[in-house]
Design a protein around this nucleic acid. Structure first.
Length: 659
DNA sequence: ATAGGGTTAG
C-alpha cells in the first residue's frame, strides 16, 4: 500500500457515495437530498426558472430534464427567450444531443425559433461533428426570413475548423466577408484556433497582422492559442518571441499564457527557464493554479522522481490549491512507468476510497500496465471495477485492452472487445492492427487475413503497420510467397514499404539462408532512398555469418562507423555468435572485450552467447569466469547454457553446478 | 486559450 504523505492536507470529506451502485438507488437517494430541489417541487421550479435566475444553470442532467418537464406544462408557456436560456444551460453542460432533441420539442410546442435559438442549434450540430446539419439550419434561418448574424457565421466557421476543415472554414470566412459581414475578434479567434489545432501555428502568426489591419486587435486569447500551439510544436523560442510581442503591444499575459510557456519549456527539458517564468509570474501577482502545478508534477514524474512530485503536491496543498483527478492520475502514471504496477493499483484504490473518481484515463493507465507486467487477473479486476463504476472505455482504452488480451493469447476476449468497438462505431486502424497482430502471434493467420480484407468495408485503409504485421505473420506461417506478393502490392494500396518492412523481409530471407535474395532486396531498399539503419545491418551481418560469408560479415561490421553507425549490444552479440559458430573463439573473445572498452556493456543474452561458445569448446575455466561475472551482474543463464553445463557436470565444477 | 492515457511492425 502506498502512503500518500500529503493525504492529511487534502480532500475535504465529501458526501458518501461509495455504497450507491444502481442508478435506481441513486435516483431514490436524490429524492431525499435537500440540495436537489429541481426534481420535485413544480411551483418552486417554475419560479426558479422564470424569475430567480438570470441564466439557468444545472449541476446534473437529471435536474435539467426534470425542470424541463415541469415548465412545458406551465400556462402560459415560457417565452422563447427563456427556452433559449434553458438550451444554453444544456450546452454549458455539453449536453448537445439533449439540446437538439429538446429544441425540437420546444418547436413542436409552438414556440417559434428566433436567430438565437437557431444559433444555439447550429452550435450543437457543430459540436456533434455534423456541420452539414448546421448548414441546413442556416438554410432554415433564411427560409424563416431571419437575418443570420456574425454569431451564426462564426459558429459555422468554428464547426468546420474543429473538424479539421480549416481551409473550408477560411473559404466560408471569405464568403462571409464578401457578403458584407464584418468579422469580429471572436471570428478571428476561431480561425486562429483552427490553424493552431491543425498544426499551422505559423499561418496563425501571419493572421495577427491581418487582424490588426482589420481593426480587430488580438487579445490575450488570440496570443494564448498561438503561444500554446508553438509550444506544442516545440517552437518555444518563437513562442517566447510572441510573448514579448504581446507585452509590447500592451496585451497583458495571464495565467494561461504562463502555463503554456512553462509547459513548452518543461517538455523541452528546459526546467530552469520554466522555473524562471514561474518566478516572474508570481512576481506579477499571478498565482500558479492546478494546471501550473500539474505541469511541474508531470515533468518530475517523467523523470521518475516520484518523491519530488509528491513534495510539489504538498506545496500546492499548502498554497490552497486542491490536487484533482489529473494530479492523481499523473502520479498513478508515474508509478506505472517505474514498473510499480501494484503501487499504482493501490493509489487507484485510494482515489476511489477518497471519492476522487478516477476516470477512463486513470483506469486505462493502470489496466495497461498490469496486463503488460503479466498481472492478468489484477488487470481484469480493474476492468471490472471500471465497468462497475459506469466508466465507458473510449477508443484508446479499448485498443489497449485488445492489445493486452492479445499479449496473453486470449484471442476470444480480444475479439469480444473488438466487436464492442464495431457496435459502438469506434473501431479504428489501431484496433485492426492490434487484433491482426494478435492473430498472427497466435498462429491464426487466416483470421488475420480475414480481418485485413474486412477493413475497406469499415472505411479503413490499411497503413504500413498493417502491411508489416501481415507480411511478418504470413512469412512466419511459412507462406513466404504470399508475404512477398503482399509486399509487392503495398504500393498499389497507397503504402510505401518502410525500413521496418525491409527488415522483416531481410530477417526472413536471412533466416532461410537466402543471403543472395536478401542482398538483392537490400540493394532495392537503398535504391528507394531508404537509409539502412543499425537493425538492418545487424540482420545482414547475421545472415552473412549464417551463410558462411565470414569475411563479408567482418567487412560490413568494420564499415559501420563510416556510415555513421555505432554498433550496439545486438551487433556485438551477432558478431560474437558468428565467430563462435565458426570456431573462432579467441576472435569472439576479443570482440567481447572490445565492446566493453568502447563503452557498450554486454547484456544477459550476450553473456550467454559467449559462454556457450566457451562451453562448446570445452574451455571450462573461461566459461566459469564469465558465468561468475554474469551472475554478479544480475543476469542468469538461459536454457541452452544450462543444458551445456549439465553435459559438463562430470567435472563436478561447483560454480557451474550452481546454475 | 492551459495539465494526465495509446506508436501497435524489426
Amino acid at each position: 500500500m502506498i502512503m500518500a504523505p500529503w493525504r492529511s492536507f487534502q480532500l475535504q470529506p465529501q458526501r458518501a457515495l461509495g455504497t450507491i451502485q444502481s442508478p435506481t438507488l441513486l435516483l431514490f437517494t436524490n429524492c431525499f437530498h435537500s440540495s436537489n430541489p429541481g426534481s420535485t417541487a413544480t411551483q418552486k421550479d417554475s419560479l426558479f426558472f422564470r424569475f430567480k435566475f438570470k441564466s439557468a444553470s444545472f449541476k446534473h442532467l437529471d435536474d435539467a430534464l426534470a425542470s424541463f418537464n415541469n415548465i412545458i406544462h406551465m400556462h402560459p408557456l415560457p417565452s422563447r427567450v427563456e427556452f433559449n436560456r434553458f438550451l444554453s444551460a444544456l450546452v454549458k453542460m455539453k449536453q448537445h444531443h439533449t439540446a437538439v432533441s429538446l429544441s425540437k420539442t420546444i418547436e413542436l410546442l409552438g414556440i417559434p425559433h428566433d436567430i438565437y435559438s437557431l444559433n444555439i442549434l447550429i452550435n450543437c450540430f457543430c459540436h456533434l461533428h455534423v456541420v452539414n446539419f448546421g448548414f441546413s439550419i442556416l438554410g432554415k434561418v433564411l427560409k424563416f426570413g431571419l437575418e443570420p448574424d456574425i454569431v451564426t457565421f462564426t459558429t459555422l466557421i468554428n464547426g468546420l475548423s474543429v473538424k479539421g476543415q480549416i481551409y473550408e472554414a477560411v473559404d466560408f470566412f471569405d464568403d462571409m466577408v464578401a457578403g458584407g459581414y464584418q468579422p469580429n475578434l471572436h471570428t478571428y479567434n476561431v480561425i486562429v484556433n483552427g490553424f493552431c489545432k491543425f498544426g499551422k501555428a505559423n499561418v496563425a502568426v501571419g493572421l495577427l497582422k491581418e487582424m490588426v489591419e482589420r481593426g480587430c486587435e488580438p487579445n490575450v486569447v488570440t496570443y494564448n492559442a498561438i503561444i500554446d500551439a508553438l509550444c506544442k510544436n516545440k517552437l518555444v523560442v518563437e513562442a517566447l518571441d510572441l510573448f514579448s510581442q504581446m507585452i509590447q503591444r500592451g496585451v497583458e499575459p495571464d495565467l494561461v499564457t504562463y502555463n503554456c510557456l512553462i509547459h513548452g519549456l518543461c517538455n523541452l527539458g528546459r526546467q530552469n527557464q520554466a522555473l524562471a517564468l514561474l518566478k516572474k509570474m508570481v512576481g506579477q501577482n499571478i498565482s500558479p493554479d492546478v494546471f501550473t502545478f500539474s505541469i511541474f508534477i508531470n515533468t518530475l514524474c517523467k523523470k521518475g522522481l516520484v518523491s519530488d512530485a509528491q513534495s510539489i503536491i504538498k506545496i500546492m496543498v499548502q498554497r490552497g490549491v486542491e490536487p484533482n483527478v489529473v494530479i492523481y492520475s499523473t502520479l498513478v502514471h508515474c508509478l506505472c512507468y517505474l514498473g510499480k504496477g501494484k503501487e499504482a493499483l493501490a493509489l487507484l484504490n485510494e482515489m476511489v476510497r477518497q471519492n476522487m473518481s478516477p476516470n477512463v484515463l486513470t483506469f486505462n493507465i493502470v489496466i495497461d500496465t498490469l496486463f503488460k507486467d503479466g498481472m492478468v487477473l489484477e488487470g481484469q479486476e480493474v476492468v471490472n471495477m471500471m465497468v462497475e463504476r459506469g466508466i465507458k472505455p473510449d477508443a484508446i482504452a479499448y485498443n489497449s485492452l485488445i492489445d493486452a488480451y492479445c499479449l496473453h493469447g486470449q484471442m476470444n476476449k480480444a475479439r469480444e472487445v473488438f466487436n464492442l468497438m464495431v457496435t459502438d462505431g469506434i473501431v479504428d486502424i489501431f484496433s485492426y492492427n492490434n487484433l491482426i497482430n494478435g492473430y498472427c502471434k497466435s498462429k491464426k493467420i487466416d483470421e488475420a487475413k480475414k480481418l485485413f480484407d474486412d477493413m475497406p468495408q469499415k472505411g479503413l485503409v490499411p497503413d504500413s503497420v498493417t502491411f508489416n504485421i501481415l507480411i511478418k505473420g504470413l512469412w512466419e506461417a511459412g507462406r513466404t510467397r504470399t508475404a512477398k506478393e503482399l509486399f509487392k502490392n503495398m504500393c498499389y494500396h497507397g503504402q510505401q514499404p518502410n525500413i521496418i518492412t525491409f527488415s522483416i523481409l531481410l530477417h526472413g530471407l536471412c533466416k532461410q539462408g537466402d543471403l543472395d535474395e536478401a542482398l538483392t532486396l537490400f540493394k532495392a531498399m537503398e535504391k528507394s532512398h531508404l537509409e539502412p539503419d543499425l537493425v538492418i545491418y545487424n540482420i545482414l551481418i547475421n545472415g552473412m555469418f549464417k551463410a558462411g560469408k565470414i569475411i563479408d560479415a567482418k567487412e560490413l561490421f568494420s564499415r559501420l562507423s563510416e556510415k555513421g553507425l555505432q554498433p550496439n549490444v545486438y551487433t556485438y552479440t551477432v558478431m560474437i555468435k558468428g565467430l563462435c559458430n565458426q570456431g573462432l573463439i579467441d576472435k569472439a573473445h576479443n570482440v567481447f572485450r572490445e565492446m566493453q572498452e568502447g563503452g557498450c556493456l554486454p547484456d544477459g543474452c550476450c553473456y550467454n552467447v559467449i559462454i556457450q561458445g566457451f562451453l562448446r569448446h570445452k574451455d571450462v575455466p573461461r566459461a566459469r569466469k564469465l558465468i561468475k561475472e554474469m551472475v554478479g551482474k544480475g543476469f542468469s543463464a538461459d536454457a541452452t547454457t544450462a543444458e551445456l553445463v549439465v553435459h559438463l557436470l562430470h567435472n563436478g565444477d561447483l560454480t557451474l553446478r550452481k546454475l
